[in-house]
Amino acid sequence: MTTLLELKEKLIRFYGKNEIYVKPAIRFVLALFTFLMINNSIGYMKLVSKTPVAVILALVCSMLPANGLIAIAALVVLADLYALSIEVCLVGLLMFAIIYFIYFRFSPKSGINAVLTPVCFKLHIPYAVPVGSGLLSEAYSVVSVACGTVIYFFIHGVSENASALSDAAEETDSSVSKVVVALNQLIGNKEMYLVLGIFIITTLIVYVVRKLDIEHSWTVAWASGILFEAIGLTAGYILLGISDKIAGVIIGSVISGVIAMIIQFLFFNLDYSRTERLQFEDDDYYYYVKAVPKSLVTEKDKQIKRFNGKNEKERLNKKKFAEEMDIDENLLD
């Protein structure tokens, strides 16, 4: 544990000294993965669905906040949908317009969750997002988690039904049928409603529990959230007849638990064995304070003084040494 704490302190110091470079690097990696995921799922417009274009867009996003990444990613998605079908593009535009008004009205500061949710779905660990959001963000972050979930299921649904949506229809009702198929990815997707409900409740459970005045509140919070997710999604998939996804839920929940432990270690690692309860007063109030120290290990600053260095500049004469040590120079004779 001591080694891990020392590593944590080194990471914190490194981040503090190089924040101006680390943040853009993280945004670049997240943006690049996002654009590659879009290209892999619905890369129908060849002009924008190339790796060099994804790298250039990621570089641009590295200099923008999370909301900038959301806007550019939405434009890329709409371009791909337009190449597939103008009807699907219009449905996608309607979806993004609704998300825009909901997201920027309730959760404009937690855009990272809206991006991470589809990315984590692609990595098969989406269950970590509501838990992490509940641990690190405010309650309103549930909106961005919900928006990211809807975006993923829409893109995934379009990818699954691409052949039906891209056929050059000769029938008079072709356009209508495409709109119906596209809307069905949002309105008639029972799995999306199940996951959306579970994720919303999970985020709120984790947020509420970690705010409680109890020992190990973060551990109880993420454990409760992951347990609720696993049980809720397993039961839901059984009811929907999608039992083949249960194994993925269990494995994903275990991985999410490991991620939650890492988050807790980095951001809320407390030493409850040294808890103190303090009491003091001022003119108007008595204060009862519970103080729990953080688990920290700081490296000692070691300074080496050379008395007989080969170089004259390295030598320390008696007078200078006595001044530094704040002692009488005569004691060194």
Rank of each mutant, 00 (worst) to 15 (best):
V91T: 11
V91C: 01
L94T: 00
F96R: 11
F96Q: 12
A97R: 09
A97H: 15
I98R: 15
I98S: 14
I98C: 14
I99H: 04
F101L: 09
F101M: 11
Y103R: 15
Y103G: 13
R105H: 08
F106Y: 10
F106C: 13
S107W: 03
S107D: 05
P108R: 11
P108G: 13
K109C: 02
K109G: 04
S110Y: 10
G111A: 07
I112P: 01
I112N: 05
N113G: 03
N113R: 04
A114P: 05
V115I: 13
V115C: 09
L116A: 12
T117M: 13
T117A: 12
C120I: 06
C120H: 04
F121I: 14
K122N: 03
K122H: 08
K122M: 11
L123W: 09
H124I: 12
I125T: 06
P126I: 15
P126T: 09
P126H: 14
Y127P: 03
A128S: 05
A128D: 08
A128C: 07
P130S: 06
P130T: 04
P130Y: 01
S133H: 00
G134Q: 02
L135C: 06
L136D: 11
L136Y: 01
E138P: 06
E138Q: 07
A139D: 05
A139H: 07
A139R: 07
Y140P: 07
Y140T: 10
Y140G: 09
